[in-house]
Design a protein around this nucleic acid. Sequence first.
DNA 1: CCGTATCCATTCCGATACTG
DNA 2: CAGTATCGGAATGGATACGG
Lengths: 152, 152
Amino acid sequence: MLDHDSSHRHECPVARASEVIGDRWSLLIVRDAFDDIRRFSEFQKSLGVAKNILAARLKALVEVGVFEICPASDGSAYKEYVLTEKGRELFPIVVSLRQWGERFQFAPHETRSVLMDNATGQPVMRMAVQSASGETLGPADCHRIRVTPDDV
Amino acid sequence: MLDHDSSHRHECPVARASEVIGDRWSLLIVRDAFDDIRRFSEFQKSLGVAKNILAARLKALVEVGVFEICPASDGSAYKEYVLTEKGRELFPIVVSLRQWGERFQFAPHETRSVLMDNATGQPVMRMAVQSASGETLGPADCHRIRVTPDDV
DNA sequence: CCGTATCCATTCCGATACTG
DNA sequence: CAGTATCGGAATGGATACGG
């Protein structure tokens, strides 16, 4: 083992994000939450995942602050899992994943689910990395630097 | 098993994308590729991953068309792993992951790596889901529909 | 230097049964 | 309905040794 990262942890935010939501189910749970799924059984039905795994994932996602547990919105005695702000801010990740999957993992004729803007009925724009002035940036237009924000 | 999805596969592009790049290493490999890493040993050093699993990942990523193998750019006899267009188009996913990780998985003072625009030296813009007219959309502003593109 | 082959530990996952 | 407990199998990951 190179122990390259275990004590001081990763400096790369990509790695840290992957640690939290990089398993096979978390983002699919979040995706369903974006469709207003809130109840255990609804997640279970939508995902077709074993209940114990779902329970473990939801618990983990609550622990890291992606979901919070709320009393049911209707009168029923059960809890609901609702996204926190941290969870809602996963939206760009899920949408960029979706758009990539749509472009590259579907044959042209295959039926798929696409994301539409409620207001216009149009599909949402393709996501892109942009410069401060709004131009689209590719990988070659960027570089990473190390920063320690001591500058308050 | 609910066999909810195994024969006709997932209609959700998020799920399809996750199947391909949703493991613990793939996106980190791609991230390094965005930093112009191309050689086996460079990936290995950067990631601190065992050689066998790196080899397996790279092979899988070549098979799904994210990387392609090229002769070395310098004279050396070895191959290089370079991103295809499909691979380069993972850029928005990696960047949105990065930005989320940066916001929510770092304490304010922790040193991190951030992505800068070469041209301006400024950090890149925060990614957002946008309507066709350019407004930022949240989860509640969107809905998914099923589409079968028979309309040529 | 670039991998492959082998072996082992751990983690993940699914099915089932069970509790409140 | 909403989970928990348990168990076995599969996948994943790491260390090491080896071959081109």
